[in-house]
Amino acid sequence: MKTKNLLFQLTDLESHLNDFSAEKLTTEEAFHLKISFQHFKKNLLELVFLSKEKPNAPSNTGREKKSAIRTIEFENAYPELDIETYEAIVEHHKSYGNVLKDLKIESAMDKKDVLILKGKNNSNQKLDTQIDLSLILEECMGEMSLLRELITLFIGNALEFMGAAKLHLQSEDFEQLDLAAHKVKAGLAMMRTDGLLDLIIQIQKGCKLDKDPKHLEFLCKCFNDEFPKVKKALDNAYVELTNS
C-alpha cells in the first residue's frame, strides 16, 4: 500500500474515532483519545519511516522526519509500505475503541498520557443538568431580582458565544474563538455550570494547542447540545427557589 493510502486510512480512522468519541465518550475522554491517536499516528508513521530507511542512509533529525512525512517527497521516496497487519486490525475491528486497546497504544504513548487516559474522570457526570442556585442567591444577598438578572445575562452570554463560535469556526479563526470562550468562562464558573465550563476549557485548549477544526467543531456542538438542558435546569432551579 502507498503512503498516501495509509494516510487516507488514518484519516478515515480518525473520522470514525471522532464519531465514536461523540457517541460514547465524555469530552475530556474524547480529548485524551484524540491525543492518544495523534501519538499513535505519529509513532506509526515514524516507525514505518524508520523501518524503510536504508541501513547506511544518513540519519535525519526528528524534525526532518516529521517534515518528510508531511511532504510528497516522502511519498516518492517510500512508495510501498507494509501495513497489512495494521489494515487487518482496522478491518476486523469496527469498534474503534477496541482498535486502540488491541494495538496496545499505551506502549506508544507517554506515561503521562497513559495515566490521564486511565484516570479518566467521567465528565458526563459533570454534564448533569442539576443546578443549585442557592449559593449564588447567597452571593446576591437574597436578592431574587439580581439573581434573575444574572441568569438572563448568563443566557445571553452563552447564546452570544454559540453564535460567535459558529462564525469563528467557519473562518477557522481560533484566536477569536479562544477569546469568545474566555468571555463566557467566568459566567459559567460563577453559575457553577460545570459541564459547560469543562467544554469551554477544552475549547480554549484546542484553540491554543492543536487547532483542529473538526475537534473544535465537535466540542462546540457538545456545548450547543448541552446548553438547552442547562437553561432548563436554571429555569427549574429558579422556580424552585421562588417557591421555597
Binding site: M141, L146, E149, L150, L153, N157, A186, G187, M190, M191
Partner: peptide, 17 residues
Amino acid sequence: EDDELLASLLNFRLKKG
C-alpha cells in the same frame, strides 16, 4: 470588568458594602 455577569454581581455587592 467587561464580563457583565460578574460586573453586575460585584457592582451590587460593592455598593452594598
